[in-house]
Design a protein around this nucleic acid. Structure first.
Lengths: 202, 202
DNA sequence: AATTATTTACGACACAGTGTCGATAAAACA
DNA sequence: TGTTTTATCGACACTGTGTCGTAAATAATT
């Protein structure tokens, strides 16, 4: 995949790193919207014209940075997949690929954190809040006993709420080919029973 | 909650509506980033100065529009909750609140669609892709038989992938207080068994 | 119907940020 | 070493912003 360990000019590497670092640190402080190219180059102690030697604009910087970090993730996952090809999918035993996923993300934690939560889509954030409330309430009514849960309560809530939002988006993207009632039913079943009709480990 | 059915000047209502409509239609075409206030007022056939009589800037327009649509959703959900207070949480029967959720979203479909998928966070989109691949693959290996699934295959994949991403974000926001291995384990169990230790309907 | 209040239209303004250029200096490479 | 590549600097035209004051249009009030 990434077959380009070309001898890269140290000045270029330095410049790009300075720009990316400045970028992420500024996002933390002001948010993506408020940032200007001037801000970035100033923070990076570089000339503004230098920015345009490497990126077309602010979006391009974000995009390229994303691709870099992500290609590293993909390579890492692919490698792990190869070695764990005997891939046994057991409950109560984390699949190495997903452990790898979390490890990779932890490695670039600040970048992921900033890039994933640069609250640019207020509607998604607010929707998650609303859905979370109902999921949480439903979970409490349905199963007040923590010992009968497969995971931590807080995680379950977030897990389910995010899943709902994701499916809602999928539904919208697909032109809402299914009725609200059908969608709600599918989600209820998934949220309560999980994906498999009869839990093979019950 | 929304106790302000104040006689609102029809000109104001008209202007706001024109601006919001122009805004959403422009997002569909060019994406949020590329839109200028000029574009919006031009599309709305209004003077640019008029825009600033109602909104501080582009972000404010998005934010206010979001709050409007969302408060309608919340009111609607609250009403449904009241009437269905005998709230029986049965599998294979969609909870009225969640049916209501989908219905409300369908009512403002274009707005939700545009606002939720204005791909402003490339990392989230790419991550969903990557995770989706692995979930899909895992599902195929683990259960090739469609009849033993609780929901449509495609929905399960999207459901689970979104859930994973959501939990990852939650994990990052919380400062990564849990080990990658622990997180992977929790997610594996949720993804396979669902939230409850013993499915009470098995 | 006439008057008053509010909203919108219009043109103009200073300002901030953009993207590009040519020329110069500095650093890397071979 | 000399040659190539990269970063710096100042300047440029340009787009878009946010805010005026004034005049026109529209709604609300009497």
């Amino acid at each position: 995949m990434s077959m380009k360990p070309k001898k890269i000019d140290p000045r270029v590497r330095r410049t790009r790193q300075l720009l990316q670092d400045a970028f992420t640190s500024l996002i933390q402080e002001k948010g993506y919207e408020a940032i200007t190219v001037q801000d970035i180059t100033e923070r990076a102690t570089l000339n503004r014209a230098t920015f345009y030697l490497h990126y077309r604009d602010k979006q391009d910087l974000m995009w390229q940075s994303t691709e870099e970090v992500l290609s590293e993730l993909v390579d890492s996952l692919r490698e792990t997949t190869k070695h764990a090809k005997k891939a046994d999918l057991h409950v109560d035993q984390p699949h190495p690929v997903f452990v790898c996923l979390f490890e990779q993300i932890a490695r670039h934690a600040t970048f992921y954190k900033v890039m994933l939560s640069h609250h640019q889509a207020p509607l998604a954030d607010r929707l998650i809040e609303v859905i979370t409330d109902y999921i949480s309430q439903g979970l409490d009514e349905f199963q007040p006993d923590d010992t009968k849960l497969t995971a931590q309560r807080e995680i379950i809530v977030r897990y389910t709420a995010s899943a709902f939002l994701g499916v809602i988006m999928w539904w919208l993207e697909g032109g809402m080919s299914y009725s609200p009632r059908f969608m709600a039913l599918q989600l209820m079943r998934l949220a309560i029973k999980g994906p498999y009709e009869l839990s093979p480990f019950a």
